[in-house]
């Protein structure tokens, strides 16, 4: 099997000793077919056991190993070494505080995710003996694409508006809210609108579209956010110009 020597430039930060992050260069012999995550694992096993980063599945399912690779938010397990030339620069996901090395603090995202109520709030509660909630294939199709989000946060690292306005609820959380709003069994839209139609919600999005370009699961958050904007605008005009329609 062919090998290649890879130069990695990894952002290091040790809160106990470092005032600010710094780059460290590693030179590692890698297999041709490896991904960046393999190279990091190899560094940790053979060169530097102090290197910290998150990963779990190694197959683009868990969404843990998101990092900036040559300035672009990517899953390290989905980034093949053979696609890069020269030094590969690895940094923690942009816009998130750095806990240690490539590990970021994700509390902000977790709190926002909770706020948008990303779970089914049944429109009509059913007793067990009434059977299951039924849905046609067309109704499933309406939201299926938005279920694919694995919370990897690459879209937050790609979104300039999230970087500029940290209060912005952001692409993934709003897309997940939209996923439940689009579900025929759900009745929780009014509750979610309190968050996603607020000033810090969808309105901070300027439709850069970067979120959809970096999404490893092709969720297309940018599409979800524009749909939320249009629906919220229709809501607002109906409520203010035709208040008699209000239920």
């Amino acid at each position: 099997m062919s090998e290649r020597r890879v130069e990695l430039e990894v952002l290091r930060y040790h809160p106990e000793t470092d005032a600010a992050p710094r780059f460290q260069r590693y030179s590692v012999d890698c297999r041709e077919e490896w991904v960046v995550l393999d190279a990091l694992n190899h560094v940790k096993e053979t060169l530097d056991p102090t290197l910290s980063y998150r990963w779990s599945c190694h197959m683009a399912v868990c969404g843990s190993c998101g990092m900036m690779i040559n300035g672009e938010p990517r899953l390290a397990c989905k980034s093949f070494l053979r696609d890069y030339q020269g030094v590969i620069r690895v940094e923690p996901l942009a816009h998130f505080p750095i806990e240690r090395d490539l590990v970021t603090v994700i509390d902000d995202f977790m709190a926002k995710l909770k706020r948008v109520k990303p779970y089914l709030i049944p429109a009509q509660a059913r007793a067990l003996e009434q059977g299951e909630y039924r849905q046609t294939p067309a109704e499933l199709k309406r939201y299926k694409q938005f279920t694919l989000c694995m919370n990897c946060m690459l879209c937050y690292a790609a979104c300039p508006e999230y970087g500029l306005i940290p209060k912005f609820i952001g692409p993934a959380a709003i897309s997940l809210a939209h996923r439940y709003n689009q579900d025929s069994r759900d009745g929780g839209r009014a509750a979610r609108q309190e968050e996603i139609a607020a000033a810090e919600g969808v309105w901070e999005c300027s439709f850069t579209g970067a979120c959809s370009e970096v999404c490893p699961e092709h969720v297309d958050p940018a599409a979800a956010l524009q749909q939320v904007k249009i629906k919220s605008t229709v809501d607002w005009y109906l409520a203010h110009l035709m208040p008699w329609l209000k239920k």
Binding site: P15, G71, P160, L164
Partner: peptide, 29 residues
């Protein structure tokens, strides 16, 4: 274990990080 999260300052560099941001800026201009 002491925690001391480090937040890197957001600069205008994002515009040049990837061509998509330049395309976005051209669209906005």
């Amino acid at each position: 274990m002491s925690r001391k999260p480090y937040l890197r300052e957001e600069t205008m560099r994002w515009v040049f990080r990837h061509p998509r941001y330049l395309r976005y800026m051209a669209r906005e201009f």
